[in-house]
């Protein structure tokens, strides 16, 4: 479990990193390294050159404003998870990050890195999609923003072009009268989810259901968000929750592996759909109550 030989550089300016990457598009960017380094050590991938961006101070930031939360490529999961303002502005970040692996991995792993790893069994690609976030990428040619909907184009595959480094991500604030919930079921605490689900639920001014959007983990090849609003014309009850689960399953493609059968994952999707929508509804009502009484 030792990686094959590679060259290594650790620039301290983004421009240096971009130039180095442009010069060698076969290089890999090292941020938290929580997926890349094990793959290299097990020789499941070989890398000719590592460009370590950990020395680039400008990428290490978290900014929360009323518009939303913007975080740099070196913001660690643990930092974003613990960021009180970020949690207030967009509580889904904290809720989902609680389920990302273990504390030691969250201390090192970066949220932007997790997003561009584009693993549909990771939490953060789905969260970015569910929240309608964007990713900013940079190259020697300049910067551009990619909407989450356009970012994930295949399993472990993103719309980043050769020479582009993901430098920051943005998720909009949770709108008024909205609530969130996130839950997942894994074999062990901190494992990849067998199935997971984040829900953003909007209420009308009189407390009816305005929107229900659900992002699913580990039951498709690319991150997926399903709009389940139409399942709740008359509010949320047991039968509408069952209907929502079935509706969601029409768009999901759960697969079996050594940890769980496809049927079981479908059952988890049903169960979590009901549980998480119920929780998001309670959260939305609580927030609405706070907004009204504030």
């Amino acid at each position: 479990m030792k990686p094959a030989a590679f060259t290594f550089q650790r620039p301290t300016e983004l421009s240096e990193a971009l130039a180095a990457y442009a010069a060698n598009p076969g290089a890999k960017i090292l941020a938290g390294g929580q997926s890349l380094i094990p793959l290299m050590s097990m020789r499941l991938t070989t890398v000719s050159e590592l460009i370590d961006i950990n020395g680039i101070g400008e990428l290490s930031f978290i900014e929360a404003s009323e518009a939303g939360v913007r975080f740099g490529a070196l913001a660690r999961h643990a930092e974003l998870h613990a960021h009180e303002e970020a949690r207030r502005v967009q509580p889904m970040l904290h809720a989902a990050l609680s389920h990302v692996a273990h504390a030691t991995i969250r201390n090192r792993g970066t949220t932007v890195g997790s997003i561009v790893h584009a693993d549909a069994s990771g939490e953060m690609p789905v969260v970015l999609t569910l929240l309608g976030g964007t990713l900013t990428v940079a190259s020697t040619e300049g910067r551009r923003e990619i909407a989450a909907d356009d970012l994930f184009i295949g399993p472990l595959e993103t719309a980043l072009e050769s020479g582009e480094i993901a430098v920051e991500a943005f998720v909009p604030a949770l709108p008024a009268r909205h609530g969130i919930a996130f839950d997942e079921i894994a074999r062990r605490h901190g494992d990849y989810a067998l199935c997971g689900l984040g829900v953003v639920l909007g209420l009308t001014e009189d407390g009816g259901i305005e929107s229900v959007r659900a992002g699913y983990i580990s039951v498709t090849e690319t991150p997926i968000v399903v709009d389940l609003t139409e399942c709740f014309p008359d509010g949320i009850d047991a039968s509408s929750l069952v209907a929502a689960g079935e509706k969601a399953l029409e768009q999901l493609e759960p697969e079996g592996d050594i940890h769980a059968s496809a049927e079981y994952r479908a059952q988890l999707a049903r169960t979590l759909t009901a549980r998480v929508i119920t929780a998001a509804h309670a959260d939305a009502k609580a927030r609405l109550f706070q907004e009204v009484t504030a």
């Binding site: 097990m42 062990r188 605490h189 901190g190 494992d191 050594i258 940890h259």
Partner: peptide, 16 residues
């Protein structure tokens, strides 16, 4: 052996 790592061989953590 399809689960020859601690990622897929599920030795319980303290949480289990």
């Amino acid at each position: 052996l399809q689960n020859a790592s601690f990622m897929d061989f599920l030795m319980p953590y303290v949480t289990e």
